[in-house]
Design a protein around this nucleic acid. Sequence first.
DNA 1: GCCCTACGTTTACAACGTAAACATCCCGCT
DNA 2: AGCGGGATGTTTACGTTGTAAACGTAGGGC
Lengths: 245, 245
Amino acid sequence: MADDDVVDADAALVAGQKPPSHTERLNRERVVDAALTHIDEQGLAGLSMRRLGSTLGVEAMALYRHVAGKEELLDAVVEHLMASMWRDEEITQEPVHGWQDFLQRLAHGVRRVALAHPKAFPLVASRPTEAPWLRPPLRSLDWVEVFLRGLTEEGFTDEAAVAAYRAFTSFLLGHLLLEVSLRGADVGPLDVLEPADDDASLDGFPLVRRLRPGLSEDRASVEFEESLESLLDRLTLVRTEHLER
Amino acid sequence: MADDDVVDADAALVAGQKPPSHTERLNRERVVDAALTHIDEQGLAGLSMRRLGSTLGVEAMALYRHVAGKEELLDAVVEHLMASMWRDEEITQEPVHGWQDFLQRLAHGVRRVALAHPKAFPLVASRPTEAPWLRPPLRSLDWVEVFLRGLTEEGFTDEAAVAAYRAFTSFLLGHLLLEVSLRGADVGPLDVLEPADDDASLDGFPLVRRLRPGLSEDRASVEFEESLESLLDRLTLVRTEHLER
DNA sequence: GCCCTACGTTTACAACGTAAACATCCCGCT
DNA sequence: AGCGGGATGTTTACGTTGTAAACGTAGGGC
């Protein structure tokens, strides 16, 4: 990305635009981008205005010309994350083959975002939404509109579409939060205690001890797929129930 | 609870024990309890060691004799929350009528805890578990053992019980996090702007505008019930599939 | 060429988590 | 009963945080 900046600067020069006085000027987008990569690399707790400023070669207070404060910055990161899904041509480009295909693509799109930014995704779940009837992770008006359009165009009644929104968001939140908490967890001090990890006196817990290998397996992908399939089955029922009424 | 303290002190006097020098002595339980009620009342962000100390009539540093630090205190609050479910006689007392009854009681028990402490419950979801194969909200060895025992005793194979654990935790996390974020949200400045809440230019979002009444309804309870029912149906399949194999 | 405005810096303050040294009180021992 | 020592709470202090306010400064429109 540092290379990108250099390239961009050169291109700007060739195009006859302003040569950067010292480095490229700050703007809201650069601040938000830097915040996201900082969270990706150092974790949410490692983000402070001062540190973020210094990675941008700038004093902390400079950031306040572009974001209103830390809270608003975090909201902007969330917005940026969900907005990045618009560039996902599998969702916005390809024609849709039925509502099940549509929900599959949406679900996988959100999952891609979550897995690309495991340390940042919890923000999508925990920041308050701008209206109480918006639910993470589909928390922007744009995505809710897309969601409702996708379903009502495919024969869902209004009530069924709303019910589907609720079920879909609950599903995504539960699965993705658990998955990113696995993948985003900082690998411990890399202790050699790995082999001795069944030591810690699982003596009172015979079933846990016996099933620990199974519990430790990474089944996140198939678990997601199967639960999604099951949800779609349920929504099939919801849809036809509301139609017959 | 302040009354309780007085009563306890009097009882202690009658029983011939130490009269409290000034107020009751501090101990870990009082600290954790106070932290929980502080979070319930002021929200997680409003909790600081100094403020918590002063509600206990004590200097901030006194807390460090009883908890190792703020992080450990939050972990203790989470532990306390989930441990409080043991006193739920509907879970631990009554005999179980089949695994579906068992899971229903467990689910409702966790939900009761979540709804009783909407501001604190997100901690149950966000604090790291002590092992990567433990998943919120059933994140203690005790509860996982109970869970696995309840299912294996009812004819689940080891693999099916593990699959059920994954599905059950995802379900609870998604639904309860969304529900408490509704009920725990600080009611805004109580603006009179309530009636004008469809104002904010929903013009680009016709479907959202049309379905907003439906989206605003509080369907949390029936949504929970229906999703739980659907999950139990799915687990019925999982169970018999693994048996036939 | 000059000025205004947008941008970045400096300085400052209150609040935070917590380490270290200190005071104090209570309990068990002889 | 007296005393010694460990447990408990306080004081002081340090570094870090978010951010308000005043200040410089540089660059583009007239």
